[in-house]
Design a protein around this nucleic acid. Structure first.
Lengths: 214, 214, 214, 214
DNA sequence: AATGAATGAGGATTCATTCAT
DNA sequence: AATGAATGAATCCTCATTCAT
């Protein structure tokens, strides 16, 4: 569920294999504890007991409660990007990728509700980590949109702003259809969202129907 | 800055004019305290001292820290809806209303950063209040979209989902262009967002150009 | 045992009589706790339970463990100066005052061993408070010596340095003869110290005996 | 800066040359760590990291934090006595030795501020070590004074008490003129202190001037 | 000899809430 | 209505020490 947190300054680098295993235990336990109880309700003792470790061990690897939370948010980012990336990989063009992407994202949230809660809470707990999380997304998104525009797959426009708007769509649909209620058919949501993203709200001239893919 | 919180079960109804003034002081002070420090960093003592009152007085009007927070979120909702409603009122059709609405929303956030922060934090502090806040929006939104579709101003589709998607757009653009940096020209942002909402990302066939308004 | 700590920024000023009583209880209890256990072994819970109060009450009056410790050191200073001042008051000249003063100081330490321990510990716990404690002494001392020199009661010299040297004498004799062992006759110690202070170590010429007062 | 701590029960005796070097590293590092941060702020990890060693290694050589602290205090005693002894060695009589000694002591403190801080802190951390430190001094001092008195170099009196008084003078002058501020000319301080020690405060009859050395 | 991971008791501090005045 | 003193549960974090390698 969690990557190894390596490459981040949030966790202290273990020097032995045993240390690496312990660090992993902590991150996995923290994902559970924070996900279920929320940052403020969660306790370090809760994390360590879930991991079968002692409190002291926690502070061997992290400087503070906030530090492991940040590490978790970063993990989450890697995980999410990998998941979406995987599903989108084969898309023939950007509009298709968007359709697939929205669906995949909501699916992802449904399967990782805790993680989604953690990221959202980062908003107030670690605003910079939250921002970094979304800026990483937005940046990649923007690049994709620009390249697609260059290929003529989408119209021209302000791609950075579009990126943020699209992230907003995914995020709120995630809350509405994955967290608050998850009984609506995902394919339907994806289709509707894809249509909005592709064609907007404007009425369709009957003589010039849009097609998802030529 | 804040309405009087009356009509809600969150605050105790004052019986005298003096009481009404004290309640108002508390709500205004709370908006500052929560907005600047966030729910968990904020303290009741911080609220009362900002209001020039004593701690004991707080509990004359509110049952708990959460109660005043909820009252604040509700206030915020009323305030936001009134603001957006005002700007949209004269729009000749829905697509125009959307364009105007996005711009107005970002403008609103810029002018009420603290309030936006408070609402977002409600996400983890008072999820039901947060949800109620957005569901009220979404419901009105959905109705507007349906009526517009009936009038042929916009295409058919799943209007509830569209409502959530549009709220997501506004919300994230608010964070990006009102809170994190507020130096981008608002008209530009509004125009680009309006275009996305109206036309989506699809390439525009030169022979059948879309127009914002026929 | 303790003054009221008023006039210091270490304690929060109570607004009611009850508050003043509580503050006093805390200071008295702290003098016992710190005196018996030392700063690092002492606990806030130990202080409050001695005072019949709850832990929370402590933090109504003091910001930290260190804050009450500082308040205590200041109290101690006032107390010590008052005690010595009282005994010295009637001395006809400075040399007599010195004799009386050393004796009185050792007597004081014997009767307030805890306080003496607290001041000494301030050395590492609150160096500035420790320094202030002794500088206040040294300053008054220096003034006394200067005035005495002007009156011809003592020889000329560097009075500030003399002040520190005399404080050093008192302090170490206090440790040696009041804390480490307190069975030596105080009058004897005072006499010997007074003689050293008055005449130094130099051999006495038989033909020109010194007299305490001409 | 530190002796090897050998001959004491505080450190475990190393059997190899490498071990001796490690022990030395620990003592030197501890002098820095304790001197800069004070006993309670200092940490074993701080000591070992300064020495480029691991925590575990510390416990190969010392049983506890207190043990190395005591070893340090003993080191300090040897060092101080050696330093003062060296400077005093050639003094023709006791009064001269005293003059030279005070000056030398302040000079020593200026050059070993950390060591002085450590010894002073021993007062509350390891009272017996502190007491032993000064009793060793006092004992030697007393003997010197007695012998000097027998030779007629100084007046008769209670030599033990005098020893403590003289130590007190040196100690407080050290704090005042070596630690708290070290910009006063040392020769001056030494001269003034020497004069006080030799002649006391009593006014000098013009017809029978004392001389430092006949 | 040296290492560094693991431990867990211990304590300061916070602050929402209560209540007597 | 308003006040402010009193409460105490709750929790983060420290760090000396142990031990398996």
């Amino acid at each position: 569920m969690a990557a190894d947190g390596a490459g981040s300054e949030n966790a202290k680098a273990p020097k032995t294999e045993r240390g690496r295993r312990t660090l992993r235990k902590l991150l996995d336990a923290a994902a559970l504890e924070f996900g279920e109880r929320g940052f403020h309700e969660a306790s370090i003792a809760g994390v360590t007991s879930r991991g079968g470790l002692s409190i002291g061990t926690f502070y061997v690897y992290f400087d503070s409660k906030e530090a492991i939370f940040r590490a978790l948010v970063e993990d989450m980012g890697r995980l999410t990007r990998a998941w979406i990336g995987d599903r989108i990989k084969g898309a023939p063009d950007r509009l298709t990728a968007e359709r697939v992407g929205v669906t995949a994202y909501i699916e992802f949230v449904r399967q990782h509700k805790n993680l989604h809660r953690i990221v959202t809470e980062a908003h107030s707990v670690a605003p910079d980590a939250y921002r970094a999380y979304y800026e990483t997304f937005a940046e990649a998104y923007r690049r994709n949109l620009e390249e697609a525009a260059a290929r003529g797959e989408i119209s021209d426009g302000d791609h950075e702003e579009r990126a943020w708007a699209l992230i907003g769509i995914g995020s709120f649909l995630g809350w509405r259809y994955a967290i608050w209620s998850d009984d609506v058919d995902i394919a339907e949501i994806g289709a509707a969202a894809g249509d909005l993203i592709e064609n907007g709200l404007a009425p369709r001239p009957p003589f010039a129907p849009r097609k998802a893919k030529p």
